[in-house]
């Protein structure tokens, strides 16, 4: 029927497992976005989707096409690289922006800006 018929059973099982676990991890990460109470707690949820979900799904794809040797798996490697490098940067910047806004609006429960130590400007 398709390229998947040529997949040997052990590879097919591994691909299935990696894909299902990866999708489930992503689902749990997004569920955390829904269930966690405040913004700073929600900031932790997408990292599960990226560090767990993306890597596992891309590994499934790499395994599948490396066994089949039907196409070059460079895209997946690059996706893993980009996502693991860029997501922390986004979340860090978003966290800093939120902290800045919360301090600007003087909301409760947000740590103050540290005072400069005595003797310094």
């Amino acid at each position: 029927m398709s390229h998947l018929t040529d997949l040997p059973p052990w590879a097919a099982l591994l691909v299935c497992g990696l894909m299902l676990i990866g999708a489930a991890t992503t689902l749990i990460g997004s569920l955390g976005l829904l269930r966690l109470p405040d913004f700073y707690a929600r900031l932790h949820a997408p990292t599960i989707a990226t560090s767990g979900g993306t890597i596992l799904l891309c590994l499934a794809s790499i395994l599948c096409f490396a066994v089949l040797q039907s196409r070059w798996v460079f895209h997946e490697v690059l996706i893993i690289f980009f996502v693991t490098v860029t997501t922390p940067v986004t979340l860090m910047l978003l966290g800093q922006a939120t902290l800045y806004r919360d301090r600007f609006e003087e909301r409760q429960g947000v740590p103050r800006k540290p005072k400069p130590a005595p003797g310094e400007e």
Binding site: S2, G29, S30, A49
Partner: peptide
């Protein structure tokens, strides 16, 4: 608040990207 929306958007596009990868596994289309 606005930051929650941006976080949602960020997760949304990562999920969409993963969805495309599953389509890619199914069809073997680059």
């Amino acid at each position: 608040r606005a930051q929650d929306r941006i976080l949602g958007l960020d997760t949304l596009y990562i999920n969409a990207m993963l969805m495309l990868i599953t389509f890619g596994i199914r069809t073997a289309n680059t």
